[in-house]
Design a protein around this nucleic acid. Structure first.
Lengths: 139, 139
DNA sequence: TAACCGGGTTACGTTCACGTAACCGGGGGT
DNA sequence: ACCCCCGGTTACGTGAACGTAACCCGGTTA
């Protein structure tokens, strides 16, 4: 390993940890990232992070989501153990969703990405515009 | 705001920052998250983080990727300014891809998510198995 | 009786991510 | 002459993600 390589390994994260490895771990890793990349999961985790909410409350707060996607996304989150579903056997019955400790722990790195995205969104938008404006790239 | 609410707002990230806002910013945010959630981007950013690589080198290192998806993903990354493409006008011509400073800065929060995923993957896998084993959920 | 709400489910269609396979153009190896 | 390498592009097909609209059941309201 070169001097530069050694210095880099001290100051830089070892990104390679998420590529090689055994294929099963890579698949797992991918599926977690996919959840972060999907349209509603991060938003829902964010809302539930601040307190439990009912299905209809989530639907109203999350402008644009359909009942189908809300139910589906909540099932996925529940399957992963990021969210809990509680049914109150009352009349009328009531359902609340709440973030689990695992879900809350995910909020931390998610926020890091969110802050990066927020900090660089203008730069990325500019890059995109510039790239799309170059004739031999965009068209 | 309640006492609990105030204390929470001190200790916990304000996830709400990524939901409301204006729709254009939300769209931008979503598109960045999608890139993180897609199948190859994170892996490629990780590889290029450690040094520039040629198309064929990336293809060989990234087991399973097709030339099409590699080219496509690299174009997207290049469009966003996360990766640079350099063509050496030699004979034979040579193309190298390298991470930009923006790309390297993304590696930091990505690593935080990667470490979270690595730390909790067994727990999530267990949650998934348990959920899928319950007859009224999985089937 | 009719209409509405809560918490969904089902059917259906579209778009997009991703995969496979074939092709291409210039150069080099044998 | 022939095929391979590099760096892709193009055509085509599949399944997943996402959207809309309709429906459902038990209970309450008017």
């Amino acid at each position: 390993m070169t001097i530069e390589g050694r210095m880099a390994s001290i100051h830089e994260p070892r990104m390679h940890s998420m590529c090689g490895h055994d294929p099963q771990e890579a698949e797992m890793f991918r599926s977690i990232l996919s959840r972060i990349g999907d349209k509603w999961s991060v938003m829902l985790v964010g809302m539930l992070h601040e307190g439990p909410l009912r299905f209809t409350e989530l639907k109203q707060m999350t402008s644009g989501i359909s009942a189908k996607m809300l139910a589906h996304t909540l099932r996925q989150l529940e399957r992963d153990g990021l969210v809990e579903r509680e049914i109150f056997a009352e009349i009328p019955p009531r359902v609340v969703y709440r973030s689990t400790p695992l879900g809350k722990s995910l909020a931390v790195p998610i926020m890091a990405v969110a802050e990066w995205a927020s900090a660089h969104q203008a730069e990325i938008a500019g890059n995109r515009d510039r790239y799309d404006a170059v004739p031999d790239s965009g068209a």
